[in-house]
Write a protein that binds this DNA or RNA. Structure first.
Lengths: 262, 262
DNA sequence: CAGTGGTCTAGACCACGCG
DNA sequence: GCGTGGTCTAGACCACTGG
């Protein structure tokens, strides 16, 4: 910022014999606040500030990047709108964490039909390190020869088995996963604290399917019973896929809830 | 704004023998830009500006409401973030419309598994004006004695029947609906242009269900085949429910797709 | 108390769309 | 050329947090 973008700016306006020395124009391509946004975004990707940590104050960032406080503020607020940061008056600006609560409200859309909302318990059935299927290669954008960790678990709400879940991770991002380790219930928090891998966005494909005999047995239902299948790929800030998860849910007592504003 | 909120402000700071006459403080409750936001929001509810129409310019609004241009700008940008308005440089600020394209990308989440994305054709089976069920009374927040319009339709993607839909409307909001009128394919646009009713937000509850014999016949599948049920209530800007829709979809070739940022 | 973010203003210039 | 929104700055004061 202080160098590249800025110099360009000066260069661009040079031929017009710039009169106002104090005024800043923007580079031909991107507005200043977006350049600031990108710099901060890159630092988040590079883990310069870790989840839960505070960023420098607006004034400090403004001084470092040689822009006004207002420009930094706009960039920060945009990042807050994307849930990457949060701010607390009198305290500072912080990197978002994947707390239990956050996982619950942001990623976990299954609610009890009675209005209850809770994370289910989990029990892992199998866990192996293996070769990916064709579908996994595509969904996780895996390179040739890449390995994956794949495990299956059943999830309960109040002693009622409700979800059968198959989770696939790129082995490269999670070294030694599943070798001497049993995955815990809150996976996102685990990914973040143990491997420094933070989920930034996710895409879900939802369909209705019939329960297989195995699933029927695990969930205590008839084979062929309708299940809600949620096929989700979670991605890092830079867009790289980091988890593929297929959840097959009995929606007798729970439903997938989503709302959209305007 | 020019009167009520402003006077309060003055009143609050009165006892401190306010020194700076030019400075504006905010009322105890809400920041100025939120007051402006609320005023504009109310005008949208009151249809002061209709969908597609331009609002007054920032300067005009600022002058009318006696605040700075920057404050109006923040309020407007917040409303843009909610998709209630959109702005075009050099042109102005406009009220959002429910165009085909908008309906497609905002409300219609069903995508072809081959990546295609289109609004299906529709054929209405029945249409009646009747008493609401208990469930409808609750979901549509109907008062005692309120009537509803209820109709059923089948929807096709390229000649393949895929969705069976039951739609319920509060009769009060849609006088004469269904009496001498057959509902068209793009309902949201119809609601807006004919009745001045604009959807602002929606909540969906998604489950997996088994096809009834009637549905199976309509969709050309076996009874008991798994269907994706989307139970949606759409609401006006002020939160009043205006449509309840139950869509039961065969997800053999289509799936419900959603993404979440951070 | 000092330091943080939150609000608000005033004014400059830029980029765009249209006549 | 004019009016629109878009960007950027500078500076003021408010409100909250912590020591």
């Amino acid at each position: 910022m202080a160098t590249s973008a800025r110099k360009q700016t000066r260069a661009r306006t040079a031929k017009k014999t710039r009169k106002r020395g104090t005024k800043k124009a923007r580079a031909n391509s991107l507005p200043l606040y977006q350049q600031v946004d990108n710099i901060i975004r890159q630092r988040l990707i590079d883990n310069v500030w870790k989840p839960g940590e505070a960023l420098p104050s607006e004034m400090q960032l403004a001084a470092e990047l040689e822009v006004s406080q207002g420009t930094v503020r706009k960039a920060l607020n945009d990042l807050v709108a994307e849930n990457l940061l949060y701010r607390r008056q009198g305290l500072g600006t912080f990197v978002s964490e994947h707390t239990e609560r956050r996982a619950l409200f942001f990623f976990f859309k299954l609610m009890g039909k009675d209005g209850s909302r809770a994370l289910p318990e989990s029990k892992v059935l199998e866990c192996e390190q293996t070769d990916p299927t064709e579908e996994e290669i595509e969904r996780l954008k895996l390179g040739a020869g890449a390995k994956v960790v794949r495990f299956t678990r059943v999830r309960w709400f109040q002693d009622v088995p409700t979800i059968v879940e198959t989770i696939t991770l790129p082995q490269e991002m999670f070294p030694d996963f599943g070798i001497e380790m049993q995955p815990p219930n809150n996976l996102f928090r685990f990914y973040q604290t143990v491997y420094g891998v933070s989920v930034a966005k996710a895409e879900e494909h939802i369909t209705a399917v019939a329960a297989t005999p195995e699933e029927a047995k695990l969930l205590g239902i008839r084979p062929g019973h309708p299940l809600l299948q949620i096929d989700r790929v979670s991605m890092l800030l830079d867009g790289r896929p980091m988890e593929r998860r297929i959840s097959r849910c009995n929606t007798a007592n729970h439903e997938y809830v989503t709302e959209r504003g305007s």
